[in-house]
């Protein structure tokens, strides 16, 4: 009897232990594994991001268009003044300015179209500084509207990284928008945002977005990159989660830190292609210059 009971008890004990172990494994597995977001989800998040930036983008397009209209009105006035002999010297600079502003508006449209296009990850060599500047251009008006000083520190001559420019731009924009949102309660004179790029140990490129906002609550620090976790009112909680998926798909890492002196810093690091790495550490290679 007693032996049977002990056998049963130990059996039940083992079963319980195994179940507990399973539960723990499942739980930790679920927490550790980063659900890969589908292309659909990533695209939806990008559309939402574009939506948030609409006012900024509209402003960036309206400025050159207003300047074009002013120049056209000027040209018309000149032509009305002397319809027969329009002075090429007067009209030349006007036309040049119209052309320049037209191209400027077109650039915004191109950037916007790139942001809205739906596509799978496609890697190509890109200059991270160009990408960073283009993202900054998209949020500039928004930053001004929110009285945020936008600064960049771009390390010159960074080697190209192998990345999908549209997806990576989404990551940078997301970090920029988050940083701006985090400063809604910061007094306007000290609202600043810094976008920094740099080379790490010749083998990776790092992009940091640092703000002077409310910082990261230690209680939620571990959940920042989880899906459906958000501290924003009306937020979906997908931005950082998707940002991490994108960075990981590029073989990189992304993390957040509480910045010294307040605010937070979000950084992602992308490895350089092997060839670039070798060239960087000075191993002679037969590559074309500037490659």
């Amino acid at each position: 009897m007693t032996g049977d009971f002990l056998n049963y008890a130990s059996l039940i004990g083992i079963v319980l232990l195994v179940q507990l172990a399973l539960v723990v494994i499942i739980l930790t597995y679920d927490r550790r594994s980063h659900p890969q977001h589908s292309a659909e989800e990533t695209h939806t998040a990008r559309l939402a991001l574009a939506g948030e930036l609409t006012a900024s983008i509209a402003h960036e397009i309206a400025q050159p268009l207003s300047a074009i209209l002013n120049n056209v009105e000027t040209a018309e006035l000149i032509l009305k003044g002397s319809p027969r002999a329009a002075d090429p010297e007067a009209l030349g600079p006007i036309l040049a300015d119209i052309k320049r502003d037209d191209l400027r508006a077109n650039e915004v449209v191109i950037r916007l179209r790139a942001l809205l296009r739906k596509r799978e990850l496609k890697l190509e060599p890109i200059d991270i500084n160009t990408l960073a500047s283009s993202a900054v251009a998209l949020v500039r008006a928004d930053a001004r509207h929110r009285q945020i000083q936008l600064r960049t520190e771009l390390e010159p001559d960074l080697p190209p990284v192998s990345a999908d420019p549209v997806h990576l731009q989404q990551v940078v924009l997301n970090l920029l928008v988050n940083a701006m949102d985090a400063m809604s309660r910061t007094p306007p004179p000290v609202r600043w945002l810094l976008l920094k790029t740099r080379l790490r140990a010749g083998s990776a490129v790092e992009v940091t977005v640092r703000d002077n906002g409310h910082g990261i609550d230690p209680a939620v620090a571990s959940k920042l990159f989880d899906s459906f976790f958000t501290t924003k009112e009306g937020g979906m909680g997908l931005g950082l989660s998707i940002a991490r998926s994108i960075v990981q798909a590029h073989g990189g890492t992304i993390w957040a830190e509480r910045a010294r002196g307040g605010g937070s810093a979000f950084t992602f690091r992308l490895p350089l292609p092997k060839r670039q790495r070798a060239a960087r550490v000075g191993i002679p290679e037969l590559t074309s210059p500037g490659g």
Binding site: S66, A67, N70, T74, L77, I94, D101
Partner: peptide, 16 residues
């Protein structure tokens, strides 16, 4: 602060 806008408006007003 927008260079294009400011310059184009100045030009328009001078012409007018």
């Amino acid at each position: 602060d927008d260079d294009s806008f400011r310059a184009s408006l100045a030009r328009l007003l001078s012409t007018a």
